[in-house]
């Protein structure tokens, strides 16, 4: 009886053990399987995250490389500009020295500053062609002629003229934005005049990166009683102003080319430094220009573009 009871309890233990073992096996297997499954999913997420991260890093590296390349290019540009600025400084310093020595009677030379007012005009390119042909630098007192000021149709053509004037090494100077005279014109108030100058200065700088440092009063510096009060304001802006001591006469009634030529060539007497006023719109002026250049050359004049330190540029 005892032996039977012992066998029964042994078999029950065996069964219980088997059940527990199977249960443990199933539980562990299931848990391990689900963990493995989870890891499999998470592993693919890790791979995806890695890929996205690598893409972002590659993009960053590419930008870093681009930045380095642009910095190098900027440095090259700066070097090149500094080199050019040095030559220009040297040129204008020598021009100043030349002018001073001429005025002191130390040099048997004369200087002619050819100036063209109120442009750009459609005919400006022809004037520039003549100046190129004779290799003569000049000064252009230009207005703000673009779509904003009612020159929409001419904008592209005038844009090219501004560029050509600057790129050819002429001096581009400020002649106010509109040149309007009369009651509502540029001289209607000091502030109005200054704003006209600033407007034109910003237009030229923003479009062409060129800083104008010289201006001319529309009509000249004796046109308005407000001018003495305007001058200090212009000085604050860094401007000097230039009048003229010879006018070819093309600003008034139309005259033949020989009149313009003679107006210039016959009025140079005793003048060591001349500033010639012309306009780059008249066909007759264009016709007279080669004679004016050749005539002045024969009289011993050298041609220079106006610069702020010139004695003709007043402050």
């Amino acid at each position: 009886m005892e032996e039977k009871t012992g066998r029964t309890s042994g078999s029950a233990f065996l069964k219980a053990s088997l059940i527990i073992t199977v249960f443990i096996l199933v539980f562990c297997g299931y848990t391990a399987f689900s963990c493995w499954q989870n890891n499999k999913e998470i592993l693919s997420e890790v791979q995806q995250a890695k890929m996205i991260c690598e893409e972002a890093m590659e993009e960053r590296d590419a930008k870093e490389l681009e930045l380095k390349q642009r910095e190098k290019y900027r440095d090259e540009l700066l070097d090149s500009i500094n080199e050019i600025e040095d030559v220009k400084k040297e040129f204008f310093a020598l021009a100043k020295e030349t002018e001073d020595r001429i005025l002191n009677g130390e040099l048997d030379l004369k200087i002619a500053y050819l100036t063209f007012d109120d442009g750009p005009y459609h005919r400006s390119n022809q004037f520039l062609d003549v100046l190129d042909e004779y290799d003569v630098p000049a000064t252009f007192f230009y207005l703000m002629k673009c779509s904003e000021t009612g020159y929409a149709e001419e904008d592209a053509a005038y844009d090219a003229i501004y560029r050509r004037v600057i790129n050819s090494g002429h001096t581009l100077a400020n002649h106010t934005a509109t040149h309007k005279l009369g009651k509502e014109g540029v001289y209607s108030s000091i502030d109005r005049f200054v704003s006209e100058v600033i407007r034109n200065r910003e237009f030229i700088y923003d479009r062409y990166g060129y800083k104008t440092e010289i201006m001319r009063f529309p009509g000249g510096s004796d046109t308005s009683s407000k001018i003495p009060d305007i001058i200090p304001r212009l000085n604050e802006l860094g401007y000097g102003y230039v009048d003229w001591n010879i006018a070819c006469g093309d600003g008034g009634q139309l005259q033949p080319a020989n009149v313009y030529r003679d107006n210039v060539l016959n009025n140079t007497k005793d003048k060591k430094v001349i500033v010639v006023l012309m306009h780059d719109y008249s066909l007759n002026t264009l016709e007279a220009l080669p004679d004016i250049i050749e005539g002045l050359d024969k009289q011993g004049y050298i041609f220079l573009p106006l610069f702020p330190a010139s004695s003709m540029c007043r402050h």
Partner: peptide, 16 residues
């Protein structure tokens, strides 16, 4: 760079 390019364009070395 855009500003500098404008400046470089208008200041040709050889001309001066």
């Amino acid at each position: 760079i855009e500003e500098l390019e404008k400046k470089e364009e208008i200041s040709q070395y050889l001309l001066w």
